[in-house]
Simulated scan of single mutants.
Amino acid sequence: MPPEAERALRADAARNVKRLLDAARAVFAEQGPGAPLEAIAERAGVGTRTLYRHFPHKEALVRTALRQTVTERLPPILYRTPDFDPRAAILVVMEAVLVIVERERTTLAAAANPAALTAEVIEPARGALADLTERAKAEGTMRADVTGDDVAHVLGLLANVQWVVPEGDGGWRRYLALVFDAFDPAASTPLPPAP
């Protein structure tokens, strides 16, 4: 196959993948997590064989759609955080992750194990949260017995609050404010040792 034809095929495949991912988000949002894959293929303007060639099962499609969203939306936030006060930056990162989870709620719900995928959404923020936590502790704006893992686990708990608050109302913001206060250095109850 001539190189030009091979490049055209690769470009066409990449376009199909993008259309399928965009269609998956739209169809899950409109029809719910039980939407048939055929509806996604139809929305993307491709055949079901093309969908299955790229995504052999629904879980692969859901994981890739979420990974794409996280890759597009989270890094710009993470790159800005070094310029912030570290405690404020932790809050910004937590909010950014929770907005992604809220926005992708129906896509997450289409997964066999939404909680595991929620952990994957949080994973790219773990390093930044650990660094910011240490900086905030050094500045005295974060309680000394909190670890970056604690912050990531709390973020996971808050992400799962999305399943019990009404969709799209930002109800998680109330719980974020309540829980974030527990990181204050003046918090009075000592924590048990970290595992």
Rank of each mutant, 00 (worst) to 15 (best):
V121S: 02
T147D: 02
A194S: 12
Q162K: 14
V151L: 00
A159Y: 00
P114K: 00
K18A: 11
A88I: 10
G168Y: 04
L61W: 02
V46G: 08
A177N: 09
F28L: 08
L108H: 04
A65M: 02
R53E: 12
V101G: 06
R87Q: 10
A128D: 09
T69W: 04
A109I: 05
R10I: 08
R143F: 03
L132S: 07
P190C: 15
R126L: 10
V62D: 02
A152R: 00
A115R: 08
L191Q: 13
Y79C: 06
A41N: 12
S188N: 05
L78I: 06
F28Y: 11
A24S: 12
P192Y: 11
A110S: 11
A125C: 05
A24F: 03
K137Y: 08
D22M: 03
V17M: 07
M94T: 06
R174C: 01
G168I: 09
L158K: 00
E167N: 10
G140W: 07
V70C: 01
D22S: 09
A11E: 15
K18I: 03
R126T: 14
P192G: 12
L176S: 05
R25G: 09
D149V: 11
T147K: 06
L91S: 12
E134L: 13
V146D: 01
E38I: 13
I100G: 06
R143N: 02
E104I: 02
L21E: 03
R143H: 03
V46F: 04
L178C: 06
T69V: 14
E104L: 03
W163C: 04
N16R: 10
A138W: 04
T147Y: 02
A111L: 06
I90Q: 05
P75A: 08
T141R: 12
R126I: 09
A8L: 15
A24N: 01
D150L: 13
R80H: 13
A187Q: 10
A119T: 12
Q68A: 13
A89E: 02
A177I: 03
L61V: 09
T48C: 08
V161S: 06
Y79R: 14
E30I: 03
A44D: 02
E59T: 05
A88Q: 14
L132E: 03
P36G: 13
L129D: 00
A187M: 10
